[in-house]
């Protein structure tokens, strides 16, 4: 965000508590460096933050708006779905709010309970006009966020908060971007394709390692990165090669991204599939506090799904 503010004099960062550095320390030092009028607190209202951001972005400013937790994005749902996503389309291309990026921490954190754990990506994947992007680690986070900020469409950027402090990588200090329209094959394999995004990627990688060690199975691991619109080419090419697929995400099973992915794979790879596409997801319950270890699609559940799909 520091580089984005430096590069673009009309860029602003705002939301609840961002001025002192943010409740997750994501904006520390930015106000001192770039000015109080460019990094500022808003009143506590998500619908206000979203509407304000749309107004900024559709009048020549770059807007990077923070929603404190993805769980609290729902008051802004109307502004995001009915307004931001449809702004360009409904005006015949006369107006747009493409210079807008929403950042929100999402996903489980060990003890977040119902309202500090949710993964709402599927709610927004059902909405044409907005892009949904989720990084899997620090290098990805920086490159994808800078790409999202300069991208000409509104982007919802969900950050796996479980990894804010846990993940450590060597991140290039310079400005760089990563493509928003490409999934990434992070590990090549020949027996089965594993698809996920965000913090689920490290779970899938661990499950793939175990499958190789215990079952001798070669897993191809794909990071979807952009949830909507997603890169069906990369996914289809992989499943056509391996013939098997497991999709995993933290969000509940029913009508989650796994449903869209497995349906697309079924359409594009039907003649190549050796087993049903298996979904490993959160259960169809609210995200529970004390039961979190039994709720999340952990390494064991992913490993079991690989075993089941291989032995089908």
């Amino acid at each position: 965000m520091d580089l984005a503010l430096t590069r673009d004099a009309n860029a602003c960062i705002f939301g609840e508590d961002v001025a002192f550095g943010g409740v997750f320390r994501c904006s520390v030092g930015l106000r001192e460096k770039h000015g109080a009028h460019r990094v500022f607190n808003t009143p506590l209202s998500e619908q206000g933050i979203a509407g304000f951001a749309i107004g900024l972005a559709s009048n020549g400013c770059t807007a990077v708006a923070e929603i404190q937790f993805a769980d609290y994005i729902f008051p802004a749902f109307d502004q995001i779905v009915n307004e931001a996503a449809k702004y360009r389309f409904r005006s015949g291309g006369q107006f747009d709010c493409g210079k807008l990026t929403f950042r929100a921490p999402y996903g489980c954190v060990g003890h977040g309970g119902l309202y500090h754990s949710q993964s709402p990506e599927a709610q927004f994947a059902h909405c044409p006009g907005i892009k949904v992007v989720i990084p899997r680690g620090p290098v990805q986070a920086k490159g994808l966020l800078l790409a999202a900020i300069e991208h000409p469409d509104p982007v919802l950027f969900l950050e796996p908060k479980f990894m804010y402090r846990a993940a450590v990588e060597d991140v290039p200090a310079d400005y760089y971007t990563l493509p928003l329209d490409k999934a990434e094959v992070v590990q090549e394999g020949s027996d089965i394709t594993l698809i996920g995004y965000g913090s689920q990627l490290q779970i899938l990688k661990a499950a793939a390692k175990r499958a190789h060690a215990e079952l001798g199975v070669s897993c191809e691991v794909i990071d979807l990165r952009t949830i909507n619109p997603f890169d069906e080419e990369t996914i289809a090419a992989s499943v056509i090669k391996t013939g098997r697929c497991v999709v995993a995400h933290e969000a509940p099973l029913t009508a989650g991204m796994g449903a869209e992915l497995s349906s697309t794979i079924q359409e594009l790879c039907f003649l190549h599939l050796e087993a049903p596409v298996k979904r490993v997801c959160g259960w169809d319950t609210p995200f529970p506090l004390v039961y979190e270890p039994y709720y999340v699609p952990d390494t064991n559940r992913c490993f079991e799904a690989i075993k089941e799909t291989i032995n089908y």
Binding site: N10, G51, F52, G55, L56, S58, G60
Partner: peptide, 9 residues
């Protein structure tokens, strides 16, 4: 709220 953002812009 969009108008407020526009005015800020």
């Amino acid at each position: 709220p969009q108008a407020a953002g526009a005015a800020y812009a």
